[in-house]
Computed example of a mutant assay.
Amino acid sequence: MRVLLVDDHELIWNGTRRLLEEVHRGIGAPDDALFFAAERDVAAACARPDRRFDLVLLDYHLPGLAGLQALQRMQQAFEGAAICMLSAESGSEHIRAVLEAGAAGFIPKSYGEADMAAALRLVLRRRVYVPAEFVLSEDVVRHREADEVRSEDLAGFLLGELSARQREVLALALQGLPNKSIGRRLDIAEGTVKVHLSMVYRALGVKNRVGAMCRVMQARAADALGG
């Protein structure tokens, strides 16, 4: 696992690195499995000669390019990497915008050490982290349609009703990979990825990745997607 942190505050660097190392040891990963590097802004990160990272932790507020524009630039420069954003702002609309832009997770900087460690533990395992307060917020939780799969049955639905390829595509989409990267990873056309996702969203009764992400997390059904 190769990890890059992009943040302009040295205190955040040191604290996040310490937590990453503790979490890394706690999940029983090999000592040499984690490479951690830090940069102060997007320009410096994109100037790195070696961009082979599995996970990028990107601060929302950076000098120079910031916010959703920074996320987009990093997605282009570090194609294939999961990019998880950290932000001092944690309103529902803010989180929704970040996730809809393709981030592979959102971690509020207001978290205490225990919650931050739990979030990092999840993203180090290449799983998406979304704050529980967002997943359960009133504007996200939908009223269930009469014929919609119940939350307690969703894991079985994912395993029994979706094809193996659809589960693969959904799992990668929920990691924040763009359609083009998913296509390359699975050796299928980008258009085929879009077709798979459209069918999956329809099956889940959602409109987009954010809806699918919240649906799967509300049902605690992520394990059914493997990985």
Score class of each variant (00 low, 15 high):
Leu186Glu: 07
Asp7Ile: 10
Leu158Pro: 05
Thr192Gln: 12
Ala77Trp: 02
Glu161Ala: 13
Arg73Gln: 12
Met85Cys: 05
Leu204Ala: 07
Gly102Cys: 10
Leu20Cys: 03
Gly183Val: 02
Val123Glu: 00
Val42Ala: 02
Leu55Tyr: 03
Gly105Met: 01
Ser198His: 14
Gly105Asp: 01
Val206Asn: 01
Ser92Lys: 14
Leu158Val: 03
Leu186Ser: 07
Met217Phe: 14
Leu62Trp: 09
Ala77Lys: 01
Arg167Asp: 05
Ile107Ala: 03
Ala82Thr: 11
Ile107Val: 15
Val6Gln: 01
Asp147Pro: 06
Asp187Glu: 15
Pro63Ser: 11
Glu138Gln: 11
Glu10Ile: 12
Leu57Ile: 11
Asn14Ser: 12
Val135Tyr: 05
Ile83Gly: 03
Glu145Trp: 08
Phe53Pro: 00
Ser90Met: 14
Gly15Cys: 08
Gly28Arg: 08
Ser163Leu: 10
Asp41Met: 05
Arg2Gly: 09
Val6Tyr: 01
Ala171Cys: 13
Ala117Cys: 10
Asp54Trp: 04
Ser163Tyr: 08
Ala219Thr: 09
Leu62Phe: 10
Arg185Trp: 09
Cys84Phe: 10
Arg25Pro: 01
Glu145Cys: 07
Asp115Gly: 06
Leu99His: 05
Asp32Thr: 14
Gly176Arg: 03
Ala43Ser: 12
Pro49His: 03
Leu34Thr: 02
Leu19Gln: 13
Val123His: 00
Val3Cys: 15
Glu168Phe: 04
Phe78Thr: 00
Asp54Glu: 14
His9Pro: 03
Leu86Pro: 00
Ala171Asp: 09
Asn179Tyr: 09
Leu71Ile: 02
Val141Phe: 04
Ala82Ser: 12
Leu204Met: 06
Val123Thr: 11
Gly15Thr: 11
Asp223Asn: 11
Arg40Asp: 10
Asn179Lys: 11
Leu5Ala: 11
Thr192Pro: 04
Asp31Arg: 14
Arg144Lys: 14
Leu122Ile: 14
Ala119Tyr: 05
Ser110Glu: 15
Gly211Lys: 07
Glu148Cys: 08
Asp139Thr: 13
Asn179Leu: 02
Glu133Asp: 14
Ser137Gln: 05
Val149Met: 04
Trp13Phe: 12
Ser110Ala: 15
Met85Trp: 03
Glu168Pro: 00
Glu152His: 12
Glu10Asn: 11
Met217Lys: 15
Ala155Ile: 00
Val56Gln: 03
Thr16Cys: 13
Ala171Asn: 09
Ser92Ile: 15
Ile12Cys: 07
Leu71Ala: 06
Thr192Trp: 08
